[in-house]
Nucleic acid binder design. Structure first.
Lengths: 190, 190
DNA sequence: ACCTGAACACCGTTCAAGT
DNA sequence: ACCTGAACACCGTTCAAGT
């Protein structure tokens, strides 16, 4: 006699995402997720293979939220200037990292290969960046320009989240300085 | 009646560093470290407060090894051209990341605040970079230039270690491209 | 003073037994 | 078909008892 389900995969992933931001990745235990979803830990294994898969699902949901935000601010029809679109991209990425630092790090600096998203998933989310890079550096250099921009931005934000900027200096200004330097660098290589 | 010590803090840290590179951070368990040092897990607590402190000591030893290598290649007397010194710095950092990926990530992308080195320790190891940045971008912009360079390099290498470049393209060439762009960017801001 | 077995509170995961 | 208590193999850590 089947009984109605007491939870669902979306509910489980939502619980994992909530715990991730509240307590960090270490707080995403199978027991904590299960209790938040209204079941016991062993029941989770009916819907996910293991904890690594659940963490990867939480990373995917986090990336989707970031992609939504970026797409809303990088419509070429509304913002024809690529430099302006790049600034919006950089601002959105950093703001997202500040709002959801644990989720951001899970996506952009995963602690292990098992919890890492596929490169294809990250690539799909970076279409707006590729479009901007092509306009700034030319179609031929678009991929490498996009990678250089991503490297700088994720490197900067990673350092910031790791507390590397605690010693003096205006971090907002340093980010703006770096962004301006990147613009100069990519445009001059056209 | 005191008996002779069966291990020492340096031996324990060396065991942790070895396990880190062999099995990743998850392999650095108190039991594995203890056995490799010839004692039992509880004995470690006579010399380190807890696992986080031991991991931090392993991170410090890893950073010291990297700093030694960089200092050997960035003597201004032997290499007067700052662009050449910057290229050597970038090459050493990436080569180190390839040789000791787990140690590199522990230093530059620590998984938690508890295992993170102090900003002062990282700053002390980046003196050669600051010197190069001052020559390239001028004394006034040296700090921000150094941070922009560090952000790009650690971001690029972090992406590479995370497998983000699996899709096509010559990664060596992309690194060289980015380095050249950074040089252009920092010099033009003089 | 250092070392250790035993114990404790946690983990993730499996599985037989329930509905 | 889903759910769960009980069990297992691991963790980090504490502590009384040994030398």
């Amino acid at each position: 006699m089947p009984t109605p389900d007491r939870t669902s995969l979306p509910e489980i992933v939502a619980a994992a995402v909530d715990l991730l931001e509240a307590d960090g990745l270490a707080g995403v235990t199978m027991n904590a997720v299960a209790v938040r979803a209204g079941v016991r830990a062993p029941s989770l294994y009916k819907r996910v293979r293991d904890r690594d898969e659940l963490v990867r699902l939480a990373a995917r949901a986090t990336l989707a939220a970031l992609a939504d935000r970026i797409v809303a601010h990088t419509d070429p029809a509304r913002h024809p200037d690529p430099a302006e679109r790049l600034a919006a991209l950089a601002r959105d990425l950093r703001a997202f990292a500040h709002e959801r630092p644990h989720g951001y790090r899970l996506v952009f600096a995963p602690p292990s290969a098992e919890t890492r998203l596929e490169p294809e998933e990250l690539a799909a989310a970076s279409a707006p960046l590729l479009a901007v890079a092509a306009e700034l550096a030319g179609e031929d250099a678009a991929l490498e320009a996009a990678r250089t921009l991503t490297a700088w931005a994720t490197g900067f934000i990673g350092m910031e989240l790791a507390g590397a900027f605690q010693l003096g200096g205006d971090v907002d200004r340093a980010y703006a300085y770096g962004l301006e330097r990147m613009l100069v660098a990519l445009r001059s290589g056209d």
